[in-house]
Amino acid sequence: MTIFAYCRVSTLDQETAIQEEAIRKSYPQAKIRHEKKSGASTQGREVLLLLLDVIAEGDKLVVWKLDRLARNLHDLTTIVKALEDKGASLEILDQRIDTGTASGRAFLQMLGVFAEFETNLRKERQAAGIAKAKSEGRYTGRQPAAQYKVTKAIRLVEAGYSKQKAASEAGIGVATLYRRLKEIADDK
Rank of each mutant, 00 (worst) to 15 (best):
S10N: 10
E20G: 12
N120D: 12
A40L: 04
W64Y: 15
A133N: 09
L61R: 13
Q143T: 13
A5C: 03
K25R: 12
Q43S: 09
T140R: 14
Q14D: 04
D98S: 12
K188R: 15
L52W: 10
V62L: 05
T101M: 03
A30K: 07
E21T: 14
G87W: 01
G141W: 07
A17T: 13
A82W: 09
L52Q: 07
Y27M: 01
G39N: 02
T99L: 05
Y148C: 14
I97Y: 02
G141A: 06
A5G: 08
L121E: 07
L111M: 15
D186Y: 10
A30G: 06
Y6I: 00
D187Y: 08
Q95S: 01
R155K: 07
E15W: 01
I79W: 08
R180T: 15
E57C: 15
D85P: 06
M1S: 14
A153Y: 03
Q29S: 12
K134R: 15
A167W: 01
L52V: 02
Y161W: 10
G137E: 03
E84Y: 08
A166S: 13
R142C: 05
T78W: 05
C7K: 00
K37Q: 14
K25E: 08
I154L: 08
Y6K: 00
M110P: 02
R96C: 04
K81S: 13
A131I: 08
A127W: 07
T2W: 02
P144N: 09
R33P: 02
R105Q: 09
I55F: 10
T101K: 06
E118H: 11
I3G: 13
A88P: 05
A146G: 15
V9T: 06
A131W: 04
S103M: 03
S89R: 08
D98P: 03
R33N: 05
M1L: 02
R68L: 04
G44K: 01
T16V: 11
E84R: 10
R8Q: 05
T101A: 03
K86E: 06
L111Q: 13
V150D: 04
L69H: 00
R105D: 03
Y178E: 11
T140H: 12
I3C: 13
D59M: 00
T77Y: 00
K86F: 04
E118N: 08
K152I: 02
H34R: 14
V9L: 02
L52R: 06
E91T: 11
I32Q: 12
R179M: 07
A185Y: 05
Y178Q: 05
K31Q: 03
L181H: 14
Q126C: 07
G129I: 02
G44M: 06
E183Q: 14
